[in-house]
Amino acid sequence: MRLSEEQKAIVKQVGQEVFGNNVQLALFGSRLNDHVKGGDIDILVKSDKPMTGKMIKMLTMTARLQMRLGDQPIDILIYDPETPLSPVYEQALTNGELI
């Protein structure tokens, strides 16, 4: 995983500030491969309960992470029971590593 312990702690803290303590946060995508350079930070926010205000929360988390981690590309997927299961969600749910 190409995130430092400090970066993982920041992602977890910001995710809980924005979405609450009842979500799981996972890293997926190219940052899981230690042999590749670059790539954006792909984060899955998973909740067992339906969420409201997903777009505002996603934008808030993205902005806070960019302020704390630096201006770099960050993609956030939000998955709850109302989210249709598309291939990108399947990949994130299957291959994501909990933060």
Results as ranks from 00 to 15, higher is better:
residue 4 S to L: 07
residue 4 S to K: 05
residue 5 E to F: 11
residue 6 E to K: 14
residue 6 E to W: 07
residue 6 E to Y: 05
residue 7 Q to C: 05
residue 7 Q to D: 00
residue 9 A to D: 14
residue 9 A to I: 10
residue 10 I to A: 13
residue 11 V to M: 03
residue 11 V to L: 06
residue 11 V to K: 02
residue 12 K to V: 07
residue 14 V to C: 03
residue 15 G to V: 01
residue 15 G to Y: 03
residue 15 G to I: 10
residue 16 Q to C: 13
residue 16 Q to I: 09
residue 17 E to W: 10
residue 17 E to D: 15
residue 18 V to C: 08
residue 19 F to E: 01
residue 20 G to E: 02
residue 23 V to R: 13
residue 25 L to A: 04
residue 27 L to P: 04
residue 27 L to Y: 05
residue 28 F to P: 14
residue 28 F to M: 03
residue 30 S to P: 05
residue 31 R to A: 08
residue 31 R to Y: 11
residue 32 L to I: 11
residue 32 L to H: 06
residue 33 N to C: 12
residue 35 H to M: 07
residue 35 H to C: 07
residue 35 H to L: 12
residue 36 V to Q: 12
residue 37 K to N: 13
residue 38 G to W: 10
residue 38 G to R: 07
residue 39 G to Q: 06
residue 40 D to P: 14
residue 41 I to E: 04
residue 41 I to N: 01
residue 42 D to Y: 08
residue 42 D to R: 03
residue 46 K to P: 03
residue 47 S to M: 05
residue 47 S to W: 00
residue 49 K to R: 10
residue 51 M to G: 02
residue 52 T to K: 08
residue 55 M to Q: 02
residue 56 I to S: 09
residue 57 K to T: 00
residue 57 K to E: 06
residue 57 K to R: 11
residue 59 L to H: 04
residue 60 T to I: 06
residue 61 M to V: 12
residue 61 M to G: 13
residue 62 T to P: 11
residue 62 T to R: 15
residue 62 T to L: 15
residue 63 A to Q: 12
residue 63 A to N: 12
residue 63 A to D: 14
residue 64 R to N: 09
residue 64 R to D: 08
residue 66 Q to Y: 09
residue 66 Q to W: 03
residue 66 Q to A: 03
residue 66 Q to F: 08
residue 67 M to G: 10
residue 69 L to S: 09
residue 69 L to W: 12
residue 70 G to N: 06
residue 71 D to S: 12
residue 71 D to T: 05
residue 71 D to R: 14
residue 73 P to M: 12
residue 73 P to K: 15
residue 74 I to E: 04
residue 74 I to Q: 10
residue 74 I to Y: 03
residue 75 D to Y: 12
residue 76 I to R: 10
residue 76 I to P: 14
residue 76 I to G: 11
residue 77 L to H: 05
residue 80 D to C: 02
residue 80 D to T: 06
residue 80 D to V: 07
residue 81 P to Y: 01
residue 81 P to I: 02
residue 81 P to F: 00
residue 82 E to T: 05
residue 82 E to Y: 09
residue 82 E to G: 09
residue 83 T to C: 04
residue 83 T to M: 11
residue 84 P to M: 07
residue 86 S to Y: 14
residue 87 P to C: 03
residue 87 P to D: 00
residue 88 V to M: 11
residue 88 V to T: 09
residue 89 Y to V: 01
residue 91 Q to G: 09
residue 91 Q to A: 08
residue 92 A to P: 07
residue 92 A to L: 00
residue 93 L to T: 11
residue 94 T to G: 00
residue 95 N to L: 07
residue 96 G to D: 07
residue 97 E to D: 02
